[in-house]
Design a protein around this nucleic acid. Structure first.
Length: 306
DNA sequence: GTAGGATGCTAAC
DNA sequence: TTAGCCTCCTACG
């Protein structure tokens, strides 16, 4: 689940449910209890997402002493970082920083909320809705400067681009990629290079552009990179909209090809991800898999060129 | 019932 | 490069 599109969608969903209203905050599991007590009853004043990091901003006029900076200085002044639509307003005194990691999940529901199980790290409730966070890598109350530090160590996020792909926000990523001897597969997963791409988008975008995952970054052409970046912007936006990853072009959908839909999991339609040893939808070659930096890589040896 | 894997990342060696 | 974190789900007996 959790690639960048999931996180941006969660930011929107939190804003829609809890934005601008006081929220009941608790940590049934206990690991976030102290912070939850500080936050309980505070107004959710804004949300933000960068790559796979989710930020929920709390606090308004009355600012408890000690905890936070006089927040709200606002935008990452980070060079080349676009303005973004998700960040609404400044948190008066704190942000809840959430990273789902590999297993984390955030689930929404409506009242009456069931009794939380003992794995619920964070429960938000208000306005007839609740949200339960389980298994995150990170769930911490941070200040505005601490939030900024997170932005500073992340590369450009295709989902923070305001209007399409032609505005050059992939430039910063290109600068690093075009000078690197590291494989494109590794670079795409490096959040310092580009933020929000995970294992599925990596495999799929490389397939869609016919690029072998082991090609060195410096051997990518400018034209290829521009196309990849534009594609990620479009694909990930669709991912946010539908809350799942679909990467097959219209002419390759199950309906268009008269083939059975993907059944192996809850995901959308893809070309190569988790299709090892199955025939490529386009050329029929066996999809290959390998381990790279402890993650599973998938590609088509027929369609993707070194 | 149990093992193992998963769309992630970090710290330590 | 590896172990470790944290939870849920599937496959296999």
């Amino acid at each position: 689940m959790p690639e960048g599109h999931t996180i941006h969608r969660l930011a929107e969903d939190h804003l829609a449910r809890f934005g601008g209203r006081p929220v009941r905050v608790s940590s049934p599991q206990g690991k976030f209890s102290d912070s939850a007590a500080l936050l309980d009853g505070q107004v959710m004043t804004g949300v933000d997402a960068h790559g796979k990091h989710l930020f929920l901003g709390f606090g308004g006029a009355d600012e408890p002493g000690g905890t936070g900076e006089p927040g709200g200085t606002g935008e990452p002044g980070d060079a080349g970082e676009p303005e973004h639509t998700g960040h609404t307003g400044a948190a008066g005194w704190g942000w809840v920083h959430v990273h789902l990691g590999l297993f984390g999940k955030l689930g929404f529901g409506t009242d009456p909320a069931p009794p939380p199980t003992d794995t619920v790290r964070l429960r938000l409730a208000g306005g007839g809705h609740y949200a339960d966070l389980r298994g995150p890598t990170t769930c911490a109350l941070i200040t505005a400067p601490e939030k900024q530090a997170v932005h500073d160590r992340l590369g450009p996020d295709p989902l923070r681009v305001r209007d399409g792909a032609g505005d050059g926000h992939g430039e910063k990523a290109w600068t690093r990629i075009s000078r690197s001897r590291t494989t494109v597969a590794a670079l795409l997963m490096d959040q310092k290079v580009i933020a929000g791409v995970g294992n599925v988008y990596r495999a799929e975008v490389l397939f869609r552009h016919g690029i072998d995952p082991y090609r060195a970054g410096k051997d990518l052409t400018r034209r290829e990179w521009d196309a990849i970046w534009a594609d990620l912007v479009a694909l990930m936006r669709e991912g946010v909209r539908h809350n799942r990853i679909d990467t097959v072009r219209p002419e390759h959908t199950p309906e268009a090809m008269g083939r059975p839909p993907r059944v192996d999991d809850h995901g959308g339609e893809v070309y190569v991800y988790r299709r090892a040893r199955m025939p490529c939808l386009l050329c029929g070659a066996e999809i290959r898999t390998a381990t790279l930096a402890a993650r599973n890589l998938f590609w088509c040896p027929g369609c993707q060129r070194r």
